[in-house]
Design a protein around this nucleic acid. Structure first.
Lengths: 120, 120, 120, 120
DNA sequence: GTGGTCTAGACCACA
DNA sequence: GTGGTCTAGACCACA
């Protein structure tokens, strides 16, 4: 479960954000559970506290965690987050289908093929 | 058909790349048709020739155009491009379905809903 | 009547201060009534006694309570406090109107609209 | 027109944010006008580029400016911003009136007095 | 030249 | 111990 991949072109703080978004959406981290402290996570990832700080600010801005000064960061209610994420996924899917349609791709075959690959 | 939207956060060269990828995949620009010259396009878009140049390099790297020294840039065979694009879309779709599945979303309902929205 | 809301971004000591200011100004706590002890309140709120202590110091500094060593904290005369609070509110209102004016907002309509919303 | 007041307890980046929000709302800075560059403003204010950068990120997040990589930061359309600000002011006013009412203050006299002070 | 990311580290407020 | 702000400066992507 490596959080940071230096080969990955994306900035470190963004990789941290995405990792924790996944953890929260998948329920690995539960509501009101405490996040690792900025300093500890920075040490663990061999990165700078400022970078972790930036990632946590972004997570808070996006509504995934909340901060209590002097105590730490905690996971927010993730029920509505899951709802939002589902809508986001659907929007991405609709866009994707739109392009497929413009390219004259047979949508039914396209979907059937993808479903097989995902094992359903 | 504005190519560049400054309010859009994405870099300008990337917007140019995406625009021409669309044009080529949709067949608006046909095989072996000549692309606008770097200088003309830069003037038309009121942007830096370096930026257009970078966009064209990226289009060539991705296999959308080819360069003939001293003559200009031309559109490549777009049949195989369409094929590749289709595979890319399918990969994106599979990834998307994977996440939806991990979030315990009902895939059939999810797909049906999206299909309705795309008007099929 | 939860005093502390961890989701609220404001520091805990500040939330305690504001809560008791309200109680005192509204007359829920009367003059010379005894405040809860630092230790009891800390236990009740499941927070650090240092935090409650800091809140009480701030309440004393702002003139809402007074301390009697060895006996505890007590509510001050709240008539003059109400007076002061009224002046403070008016100052805030004047500032607010000033900005509204600079933004070319119709003050009469603005005030009428707000009064309706507050049910007057 | 000092932007930063070191006596002011608020963080520097926040003071920068507030200053430019005012400038934009008041129309001193017009739509699509270029903001000072991060480096220049940092020099002018004798502060660190990171601090200015943070302020600009916040201004972008709040919808006051937009960023074009490699070019600079620009002022956004401020018509809707003014609309939003007006609603915000009204909400603050309603809250203020609510408290005044709870304190048994004569609202009419209160408002009349404030209007006189603001010179209307 | 422009903004974006990151390091190494200091100092402060809060609990 | 916890997060928040800031400095001084490097290095990168983009125009």
């Amino acid at each position: 479960m490596a959080i940071i991949d230096y080969q990955d072109g994306r900035p470190i703080y963004e990789q941290i954000v995405d990792h924790y978004k996944q953890m929260i959406l998948l329920g690995v981290l539960e509501q009101d559970e405490q996040m690792p402290s900025v300093r500890n996570l920075a040490m663990e990832l061999s990165t700078n506290p400022n970078t972790v700080q930036k990632a946590f600010m972004e997570l808070e801005r996006q509504g995934f965690i909340y901060t209590v000064k002097g105590r730490g960061n905690f996971v927010k209610n993730n029920q509505s987050l899951k709802q939002e994420r589902q809508e986001e996924l659907e929007n991405q899917f609709v866009e994707l289908l739109g392009e497929a349609k413009r390219l004259d791709i047979d949508l039914d075959a396209f979907i059937k093929h993808a479903l097989e690959r995902v094992g359903q």
